[in-house]
Nucleic acid binder design. Structure first.
Length: 313
DNA sequence: GGGGCGAGTATGGCGGTACT
DNA sequence: AGTACCGCCATACTCGCCCC
């Protein structure tokens, strides 16, 4: 498989994150997968995210359940690796889902599977992934207007082997739309909780380069595809009531998407290594006036993303 | 026999830790 | 501090099966 540096960004074939009409029907109130959506709706710690022809339910930054259509029908999968530290205490329901009853069997074991995942992470913490999902939860558009200026659309977005922790929109108030959610700006987000993750092959500078390469790919036409991909994700999530339709999303702003570095309980200025890395990012941003790079400081106890805690680089 | 599909598996990216 | 390795994620690839 090619490394990201070998990929032709002009021709890279991106399969958009989108569910089939059949999947949307099965998740609807009359479909056999609907109990999953119900469970997600009732538990703010769970989120459902749309992938390319399948979807995941995430808990604590890990995949609680993955649902994919196969020839036999819908297949549910729990990552058995989580049992490694905590040998099988849960009898998994049948992988094949053929009825609403089958789906209910899976939903019934969610609490037990969550205990297994918690047990796994007690031995092996996943601080940053957990922060990502907590940020997504704190800046959700599921239960009405988001508390801050951002709404998280998705987690772990990958494009041409480049990966970002979160995809968000930032509200864009105008005269005709004082609330600002109808034509928001697309945002690529990278979350950092530890100094060591700020440098090196997945550090701040490399992520800034990845962002710039995507935004500029094909003279901006690849970016238009990504906007289209997320317009579709928003529409599907509105239909699944995972994004509140009353926010009135219409389309994305044509403005260049923002790249946002979020530091959780981390002060980059207090760490000379991070400060050095930030300086590289700043220099990179200055030579590319079209890009828009910002940083934001959050704490574990206040993960609401606002303009006030954001600073231009 | 070849095209399409899909289950299983490999690979790469990234975070995290443990060891030097 | 550097690095080597592991775990988890998304996704790309492989190869066998089914159907024409």
């Amino acid at each position: 498989m090619p490394r990201k540096t070998d990929i032709d960004l002009l021709t890279y074939p991106k399969n958009p994150r989108r569910l089939s009409d059949n999947a949307m029907d099965e998740l609807s109130s009359v479909g056999m997968l609907h109990p999953i959506l119900d469970a997600v709706a009732q538990d703010p710690e769970l989120r459902l995210d749309i992938r390319d022809g399948y979807f995941n339910v995430y808990y604590g930054g890990g995949s609680l359940l993955r649902l994919q259509k196969s020839r036999q029908g819908w297949m549910a999968r729990f990552d058995e690796k989580y049992f490694r530290k905590m040998p099988h205490q849960v009898n998994l329901p049948s992988a094949t889902i053929a009825s609403e009853t089958d789906t209910r069997c899976w939903v019934k074991v969610f609490p037990a599977l969550i205990k297994v995942m918690d047990g796994f992470w007690a031995a092996k913490p996943n601080v940053e992934r957990r922060h990502c999902q907590e940020i997504a939860q704190a800046n959700s558009g599921r239960f009405g207007t988001p508390p801050g200026d951002y709404l998280i659309l998705d987690i772990e977005y990958q494009w041409a082997h480049r990966r970002f922790d979160l995809i968000a929109v930032r509200k864009n108030p105008r005269m005709a739309d004082p609330e600002g959610w109808s034509v928001p700006k697309l945002v690529f987000v990278e979350v950092k909780s530890k100094p060591a993750a700020c440098k090196g092959s997945a550090g701040l500078y490399v992520h800034a380069q990845d962002y710039a390469s995507i935004v500029g790919a094909g003279g901006g036409c690849r970016l238009n595809e990504i906007r289209g991909e997320y317009e579709s994700v928003i529409r599907q999530k509105e239909n699944l009531e995972l994004i509140d339709r009353r926010l009135g999303f219409e389309r994305f702003s044509v403005a260049t998407p923002e790249f946002l570095l979020i530091f959780v309980d981390l002060n980059p200025d207090a760490d000379s290594q991070i400060a050095k890395e930030m300086e590289k990012v700043r220099a990179f941003a200055q030579q590319l006036p079209s890009v828009s790079i910002h940083k934001m400081f959050l704490t574990k106890t206040d993960l609401v993303m606002t303009k006030n805690n954001r600073k231009t680089l």
